[in-house]
């Protein structure tokens, strides 16, 4: 199979794998540093996306195409997207302030972080020095996806089910917390809303404007309803309703 032949052949590192690694490893590191260093929360999340994408490609490189793609789809595509969703709703100008509340905290954090990274790095390097990977071909013998499926549904089925039960409980819990109980009669669907809007006694449209007719342009002139009646809703309450007399609507003789 291509993925297996091109990628990690057990015991050796192929040229393509090395090139990909040395391109993506610095990128992943830059992403990690950028995530910590970025002041804007959304930028921070984007740096993390870069790191996760690189990790996904690393998994593919190490003959685990399924887990690599799942890393990209689930972590980068769905989970980070929801993170972004929340961050964007928080507000785009919510940058962190640079004022240290604890004196010397940043320097100490950098020092401790470097020390920890050095410890872990050297520890892993010394532990894995000269160790050759075995069993990769057997694990992928019947295909990567099939191998994972076999393990998930036989050996680790209990752990798998427990994890899914935990996740479902969390989802249901979140839904219960966010749920608002509404009485049945308070729920209005589209049809009910429209019926209520056009029910007798309710005026469906905006309030009619006061009359600007051919004879008058006064806000005191009430508007006419479709059947010709005058409506008081159109005039301000403080103004007396004033209807034009026959004399006022008669031609003034100026336009002759």
């Amino acid at each position: 199979m291509t993925t297996q032949t091109v990628l990690a052949a057990a015991g050796g590192v192929s040229g393509g794998e090395q090139v990909t690694f040395w391109i993506l490893a610095p990128l992943a590191l830059i992403g990690a540093i950028g995530m910590v260093a970025a002041r804007n929360a959304v930028h921070s999340a984007l740096w993390l996306v870069l790191t996760m994408l690189c990790l996904g490609v690393f998994y593919v490189l190490q003959a685990g195409p399924f887990i690599g793609m799942v890393q990209i789809i689930v972590y980068t595509g769905a989970i980070m997207m929801l993170f972004l969703f929340v961050l964007m709703l928080v507000g785009r100008d919510a940058s962190d302030s640079l004022i240290e509340t604890l004196r010397g905290q940043r320097a100490a954090a950098i020092l401790l972080g470097l020390g920890f990274a050095g410890l872990v790095g050297t520890g892993i390097y010394r532990a894995l020095k000269g160790v050759t990977a075995v069993g990769l071909d057997q694990a992928n013998a019947e295909g990567n996806v099939q191998g994972i499926a076999r393990l998930l549904f036989t050996k680790y089925v209990f752990a798998f089910e427990l994890t899914s039960a935990l996740l479902i409980t969390a989802a249901v819990g979140a839904m219960v917390l966010a749920h608002i109980e509404r009485r049945k009669q308070d729920k209005m669907d589209q049809i009910a809303t429209m019926n209520a809007r056009f029910a007798p006694g309710n005026y469906p449209g905006p309030k009619p404007g006061p009359g600007v007719f051919a004879t008058s342009s006064s806000v005191a002139t009430p508007a006419r309803l479709p059947d010709g009646r005058l409506t008081e809703r159109s005039t301000p309450d403080i103004l007396p309703v004033r209807e034009l007399t026959a004399q006022e609507v008669s031609p003034k003789g100026t336009d002759k």
């Binding site: 399924f66 793609m69 295909g143």
Partner: peptide, 23 residues
């Protein structure tokens, strides 16, 4: 090209494409 998880590559592409719109 084709890989043993090609359809997942398609899904990954479409889920990464959302970033363009959201960002």
């Amino acid at each position: 090209t084709d890989v043993s998880v090609a359809v997942l590559v398609l899904l990954a592409c479409s889920s990464m494409g959302i970033y363009g719109i959201v960002l």
